[in-house]
Design a protein around this nucleic acid. Structure first.
Lengths: 159, 159
DNA sequence: TTTTTTAATGATAATGGTTGTCATTTACAA
DNA sequence: TTGTAAATGACAACCATTATCATTAAAAAA
């Protein structure tokens, strides 16, 4: 294997450097896993995948990497109420994929939805602008979640 | 003190009984604390207040009571990302007090806002109806949170 | 009221996701 | 190629929350 730089220059490398963070093999792996997954992953999900690619990677590194990715706003961190955080790339290859969540409070299933998003975006943009003005709060990200019972849990109401 | 029933009949007593739960002194205290507070309280916040009123009350009971209140949808449970859940009565004395949250990702400060709620409610109602139809998901509660930097943290950007 | 039944409670231990510590390794600038 | 500060992994610690279990109390039955 040649000794020169093994890696290409992914678009996010610049952002890393801008924040003073080094580009390491672990970080590429974690980013790659997030980029290659449709779903919101837990730290453990990511750890398992990363470990399969390189067993030397430790759990601590996964958390640390997710933290800095979140800090740089490349990743959004979610809580669905089941005691573990989920992580998701802020934008996919074709820009932000705007969606929200329906969370079943009985079985913890999460349904992503993208319906009604256009009207929503319009309202949110207006709201964000208003809130930013009133409270001088700089908004980077928002979260909308609906809680209730999924199809299945409505039927077997008795759990 | 007379030996007959010491308590009045708060409106939520019936709901407790409907679910088969007993009305106990601890549960009245927890409910009272939630009803008497404007803010979203953590389990520990509630424990401290409850303990002041009756030192025999244990942390476990606080959690258990909050769980059943949440199950009965008398209480909403929130996560602001600081590792502890917050609890808030679903409706105040004068009905649901609809508000949402601005969360500072730097200092974890939470600002409640009630601005723009009217337009929001209109859209949400429509969205909820649509989602309920499409996914057969029964929605009880929703959450809107904006994440960003509060006034203070924008200035001292360096923490 | 008294008794009976069963849920609720509190002390305490256990769980489990996440974070801190520290010696070692690595990225990358000089 | 070398120097240096950041990154890493193993492991311990943390801490909010949950499980266990013997005891107590609510409310139904007598």
């Amino acid at each position: 294997m040649p000794r020169r730089h093994r890696r290409g220059h992914a678009w996010w490398h610049g952002k890393f450097q801008g924040y003073g963070y080094k580009i390491t093999a672990s970080r590429e792996i974690v980013f790659g896993i997030l980029a290659g997954s449709e779903k919101h992953l837990s730290a453990e999900d990511i750890y398992i995948k990363a470990h399969a690619m390189n067993p030397a990677i430790g759990m601590t590194t996964i958390y640390r990497t997710l933290d800095i990715l979140t800090e740089m706003r490349l990743v959004n961190k979610f809580d669905f109420g089941d005691g573990r955080a989920r992580y998701e790339l802020t934008e996919g290859p074709k820009g932000a994929l705007h969606h929200h969540h329906l969370i079943c409070t009985s079985c913890n299933r999460v349904i992503d939805y993208t319906d009604f998003i256009d009207e929503e975006v319009e309202l949110l943009t207006r709201t964000e602008k208003g809130l930013t003005g009133k409270y001088n709060f700089k908004i980077f990200h928002h979260l909308i979640q609906f809680y209730g019972l999924c199809d299945k849990c409505q039927k077997g109401q008795d759990n």
